[in-house]
């Protein structure tokens, strides 16, 4: 499906924000992703949806290789072919009334759409964002604009609390955990919070819609495809649970 780029700008040295206009009817839950076809690259790139409305969506992505580097060079007015609405997303109905949204680095973007959805349901989310250093921080103003409490940690202490997101848990009042970020962060968070909540995983994908079995993980409930049964998994069925 074709989408027109309306904005593509850098938020930090490596993180970019792209807005696209097109059919968003297949997006039903925050935490879903799209598969982006890039000229000159064979496989599509899976990118989580940061937020969306009826006719546009926003992708906030990190340049991690040649494909995303090419994506960062694309100009407004150009078209991109996306497979939209992939994966299960977060279950906002099943989570608590005061969920803690924990994002590590480029795991943060899908939590913005999630935060909006939770607020629309009358829940009271709070946000905990972890970065390496202040220069790598992004999206914080977008969360603050929603009026939710935002706690920030950086490894070097250049912004917010010094340390990991798990170092900030003690001071926060929450009844559930919804997280997206690097695997070591998710594992540490899961251990510190008693194994509950919903966690969004990442894996190298082939198709992104369940056909190739490239992104399978083994869990207590059997083998699961990160692209299809995930990317969001309940705390009890994570691969390490």
């Amino acid at each position: 499906m074709n989408y027109e780029i309306t904005e593509n700008r850098a938020l930090t040295a490596s993180v970019h924000s792209m807005r696209l206009r097109g059919d968003t009817g297949s997006l039903t839950r925050p935490g879903q992703f799209v598969q982006v076809a890039l000229p000159d690259f064979y496989l599509r790139r899976p990118i989580s949806v940061c937020e969306w409305d009826r006719e546009s969506l926003r992708l906030v992505y990190k340049v991690v290789g040649q494909g995303t580097a090419a994506m960062a060079e694309m100009k407004p007015g150009a078209c991109l072919d996306l497979l939209p609405g992939l994966g299960n997303g977060f279950d906002t109905g099943a989570c608590g009334e005061k969920p803690l949204l924990v994002g590590g680095g480029v795991g943060l973007p899908p939590l913005l759409g999630l935060c909006r959805a939770l607020l629309a349901q009358g829940k009271k989310p709070l946000v905990l964002a972890g970065f390496g250093t202040a220069a790598e921080a992004f999206l914080l103003e977008d969360f603050r604009a929603l009026g939710v409490p935002v706690t920030v940690t950086t490894m070097d202490g250049s912004l917010g609390l010094r340390g990991l997101v798990t170092d900030a848990l003690g001071d926060l009042d929450y009844d559930d955990v919804l997280a997206c970020g690097p695997l070591p962060m998710l594992k540490a968070l899961w251990r510190c919070t008693g194994g509950r909540g919903q966690y969004s995983l990442e894996e190298r994908m082939g198709c992104g819609f369940g056909a190739c079995m490239g992104c399978s993980v083994q869990t207590a409930a059997g083998s699961m495809r990160v692209c299809k049964e995930g990317p969001v998994f309940r705390g009890e069925v994570l691969p390490w649970a």
Binding site: F41, Y42, L43, R204, G206, C212, C215
Partner: peptide
């Protein structure tokens, strides 16, 4: 995993 990799003109 990883059990998928990009290639020129394929995977």
């Amino acid at each position: 995993t990883p059990r998928i990799a990009e290639c020129p003109a394929g995977m």
